[in-house]
Design a protein around this nucleic acid. Structure first.
Lengths: 336, 336
DNA sequence: TTTATTTACGGAAACGTTTCCGTTAAAAGG
DNA sequence: CCTTTTAACGGAAACGTTTCCGTAAATAAA
């Protein structure tokens, strides 16, 4: 129960509190001699400044909040890796919030952040085009906010995403080129605008070929999704599947196994995915792979930029779009 | 730039600061009438208490630190899920630190935490039997600490792990029963004691069968590990592999693909792993699957228990061991 | 009616920093 | 030698809460 503070350092050294504080911050007002002594004692006693005190006084916490839907997900894991890299480099702490896609939870988290808990917020939205007033409030309170991946165009904050529209076109055309005549598009929730953007790419690629779209809306529950996909495959008999999120591709594999559909012979599958084991699946999965680490890194850098030159609020309403990778593997192979 | 605080509420309501504060905390000293008014205005103005101020005054932050080696890893993702569940339930915030297995980084993180930044610490150690003085210091400062997964028996803190020794025996025996005559044990780093425990299980299971152990130490760099395993497979020609961590199993698959070793015909593989795609790999991977979510949940609960009745420091030096699951799949199949 | 207790509230200290003001002594300038 | 500047430091306020002391009025007890 030691908890050494500045006052104790001051007493021990026969100096005033203000002198010690300035010495620790390497102020020009303090002689080299005194600084040496202060540093030495601070190290010896393992002095650590109390973050609540400096946060309260200085109105900055060196902490940023990361608000994301979930964690058990290779995409967000990689994003966090990128965020963590730049946070580490610049000495920032990371406070995490998981919304589980629950809008109300997101609102309450964001409200909590309005009062000096963090210097800035990184957010991947749970519902993109719902009511954004909690975010406007955050902006009004002067707390920098950068959106990534799941963003809303209605907000004039900095946004970082990948090229969802273009890569959805690439994916769909790839299936068409591989010979698919009836391609199903699997999405989790209609209201997710990133899903809409990808869907638009899918539709755009389909149109000139005269193929009729087949949109399938899945559930948040894996079991339910399994049944939805199983029924769909049995009833509609598509010969290609475009999964808009990784989780759906995995479930597709399981369904195909159950109902004895051979991939890619009977049906071809492509998916947005950052699965590290994509190449080891049976068969290996063709993917659109987002630059997840980059997205995190870029978003964090943008945020810290705003934090540091906040007065000049230079960069608002900027949209950084990073390119995804298209990786062809066996699940869409035309030869079998 | 609103940032409403108690003083403003007090002025608006013609009340004193202390009365408003008490009303917000639902104190018995305040009349129902006054409370109503205060709550109403607080909600209307979206008042959020300043966490630095209350943290400074009350010496508690409702925040716990989670210090782990990495994030891009299905095991830790699941653990975090468990931690987050109980944190959420009890209204705690989560501050994350990633050590990347760097001991010095761990030390500096832990030192940072010694002074009121958090109410408690959850730690999975980077090097288990190195110098633990930073953790002793943390204990001395009265900050509750619970270790999980990678723990050290030298510390008398609460520890939560899975049954590494027993399940390593199970895994090794399974390979033997499947007909393996020369089983290699793959580990990342000799100094990780969790690796040692698993290794001891491997050795124990091997001894009565008279098989000579074959220990292979891999690197932190995936490319290097790839080469180590490749050389080992070509030189030693084992017919069974026991990978002590998930990452190594994945690399094994890639090596086998490259040098045309058929799994399980030429070589059988079992691994500690929480890979969600284990059953979809080619071939599906037999795993010892740790109760990751449970580990996180249990560790967090233990920590919050200590935080809440810290005076009674009842539960020290307690070791909770949770059972892993053995899931047999095709990578160790005896028939082909 | 007087005294004791309860109810409902206000004032102010305290938490540990940082920083705005001094202030003194020495160095520099004239 | 006197004035001005500079260097090096100390005192105290401020950040927003919480809580320890009051204290006045209302109620209960005597």
């Amino acid at each position: 129960m030691s908890k050494v503070n500045i006052k104790q350092l001051a007493k021990e050294l026969n100096l005033s509190i203000s002198t010690v504080s300035r010495a620790l911050r390497d102020s020009y007002e303090i002689s080299a001699d005194t600084k040496k002594k202060v540093f030495a004692l601070a190290k010896q006693l393992n002095y650590q400044p109390n973050p609540n005190a400096s946060g309260l006084r200085g109105q900055k916490t060196k902490t940023i909040a990361v608000v994301i839907p979930e964690m058990v997900n290779d995409f967000f894991s990689l994003v966090i890796g990128g965020i963590e890299k730049v946070a580490q480099e610049q000495g920032y702490y990371l406070l995490f919030y998981f919304t589980h896609g629950d809008y109300d939870l997101e609102v309450s988290f964001i409200n909590t952040l309005a009062n000096g808990r963090v210097d800035g917020v990184l957010l991947s939205m749970s519902r993109e085009n719902h009511d954004n007033s909690h975010l406007l409030e955050l902006n009004k309170n002067g707390i920098p906010l950068v959106l990534f991946d799941r963003v809303s165009e209605n907000l004039d904050n900095v946004k970082v995403t990948s090229d969802n529209y273009d890569s959805a076109i690439t994916a769909t055309r790839h299936l068409i080129d591989a010979g698919c005549k009836k391609i199903a598009y699997l999405q989790v929730h209609k209201n997710i605008s990133i899903g809409k953007i990808r869907m638009n790419g899918y539709l755009e690629a389909l149109r000139p070929k005269g193929q009729t779209p087949l949109m399938v809306e899945c559930s948040n529950e894996n079991e339910e999704t399994f049944e939805i996909i199983e029924k769909m495959l049995l009833n509609e008999k598509p010969d290609g599947i475009f999964a808009s999120v990784e989780k759906l591709a995995v479930i597709c594999y399981r369904v195909c196994e159950k109902i004895n559909l051979r991939i890619p012979r009977d049906i071809k599958i492509i998916s947005f995915s950052n699965l590290q084991t994509a190449s080891l699946l049976n068969p290996s999965l063709t993917t659109i792979t987002q630059p997840a680490f980059d997205i995190g890194e870029t978003a964090a850098k943008e945020l810290l930029d705003i934090i540091h030159k906040k007065s000049k609020s230079a960069s608002r309403d900027k949209h950084v779009i990073l390119k995804s990778l298209f990786i062809k593997r066996k699940s869409t192979s035309a030869l079998y």
